[in-house]
Nucleic acid binder design. Sequence first.
DNA 1: TAACGACATAGCTAACTTGTTATGACCAGG
DNA 2: CCTGGTCATAACAAGTTAGCTATGTCGTTA
Lengths: 106, 106
Amino acid sequence: MAVTATQVDLEQALKAIASPRRLQILDWLKDVAANFPPQEHGDPVEHGACNLYITDKLGVSQPAASRHMKVLVEAGLVIASPRSGWVYYRRNDDALAELKSQLAAI
Amino acid sequence: MAVTATQVDLEQALKAIASPRRLQILDWLKDVAANFPPQEHGDPVEHGACNLYITDKLGVSQPAASRHMKVLVEAGLVIASPRSGWVYYRRNDDALAELKSQLAAI
DNA sequence: TAACGACATAGCTAACTTGTTATGACCAGG
DNA sequence: CCTGGTCATAACAAGTTAGCTATGTCGTTA
């Protein structure tokens, strides 16, 4: 049977975005090249921004940023790409679109 | 200057709806007449459902339901109508529409 | 005026969130 | 093989949330 490409748990996704930090991160990830310094090992558009840069922009400790990213990844709203020691994060626009679609019914 | 009719604080509204209880309540309030017993003093459509009926359907204590309603009211998503001892709650569809509009930009 | 019913608030507890520092796993380079 | 850099996890503290019981407020009614 036909299945939606991305499956979003509404409550989990809402909790993920009900945070100024994570809303900010999602916004930054809209344009990685513009919002983060150049990276050596990952393409900004294809792979996203690494955790260290997100940490710096957030102004929190590295583990704090790491956990924010984990919340977003587990909600399916962000995709993590481990790549030779770094982990790059980018938006999952399919999931974000499905979230908006579910919210339309509220 | 032109001002939006309803003002919604995105973070506060997201926290308000990032709860299965409150999502459930908002859904019930879509059709008060269908989801709640008949009321003597308030019109279901015009005024909404009283706290006691919401309490019963939620299956929690009366103060717990009362506080959930307070969260929704303070976020602007629900309107409270005190009326001769009872308080009736109904959806604020303008605010909900504005919330969805803000979410479209995420 | 006294009693009752609906709702809000206060006070408490348990669970979750978010920050921290310390540490472990893992990969590249010397 | 050892070192250094990146990220994740562990352990802890502080604040918030969500439930409960008990109590207070207020309007209606007997």
